[in-house]
Design a binder for these strands. Structure first.
Lengths: 150, 150
DNA sequence: TATTGTTATACTCTATAACTATA
DNA sequence: TATAGTTATAGAGTATAACAATA
């Protein structure tokens, strides 16, 4: 095994991890009636409280038009409500419903449980080694993606 | 720092890795004129040679109808051709064009380069520790996703 | 009768541009 | 004049169902 082959094997394992994690999260979201596009919006509301659609568009890095569509779907499914903004009659305040809050609480619990299932069985030493390597890879990836912007 | 907090921190780092890798790969595919849906189809043809659409649908885990749409797009962009199947007049053989092959060769090179950029700077020991931890996480994730199927 | 790939239909996500009501 | 959110329009991706041609 040359070093290059080890590097390639590591990358392929990482890609397998990405694929499996995507599967797992998509399945979990589907059980809660959410999609990969809608979940970040709901999570944003959970973390930051009621927001205008403009603020959501900026936070999610997408267009205001797209937020309109996402909020439409979430209103239909009962996750959020649209209310008039108290101070700006052009704007709309999007808020989580009690049902939306309940789903978010469940998601937070699932998050903790997943972390324990994945890393709990590892020894302290193994976890430390893994986390250190992971941090260095992430920092290099940050540099790569940042420098690739148009 | 409790152990649970360390587990959570590890998961969050992994999710950051997933996010950055998705960015990087989407950018790289866009430079080659591909999308995240079309790339696996083209990669499949590169690895296994000309296929029927039925075979592609099974390999990609999607519907025949969807393959029709993906192949339509790839034909328009010059990556693949549709030819009559020599032995079964119901079927169609999808093949890479020379241009498609060229792009696949470039993608393979990018893959090796990414592996070296991400893991090359790590010491042998660090890489080993990282890879070992990764393998155990991936195997547990496999079990989780597998057991979650309906 | 079974299989291959299509048309028909519908829904989600995304983007840009034009428009409205307000600020 | 600028901002918030809409309608209008377009295109990619996905799914199910009905259907044609062929096996």
């Amino acid at each position: 095994m040359t070093r290059r082959q080890d590097d390639l094997a590591a990358l392929d394992r990482v890609l397998e991890l990405v694929y499996l994690l995507d599967q797992d999260m998509t399945q979990a979201l589907a059980r809660d009636g959410l999609t990969k596009s809608r979940a970040p919006l709901v999570w944003d509301l959970h973390q930051r409280g009621p927001s205008t659609q403009r603020a959501l568009a900026e936070s999610l890095g997408t267009s205001p038009r797209n937020v309109t569509g996402l909020v439409d779907g979430l209103v239909d499914e009962g996750f959020v409500t649209r209310e008039p903004h108290p101070k700006d009659r052009r704007a709309v305040l999007v808020s989580l419903t009690p049902y939306g809050e309940k789903v978010m609480a469940r998601m937070a619990g699932d998050h903790v449980r997943l972390a324990e299932q994945l890393f709990g069985p590892m020894s302290r030493t193994d976890l430390d080694g893994f986390t250190t390597g992971l941090a260095s890879v992430v920092s290099r990836l940050h540099a790569l993606v940042g420098s690739e912007a148009p």
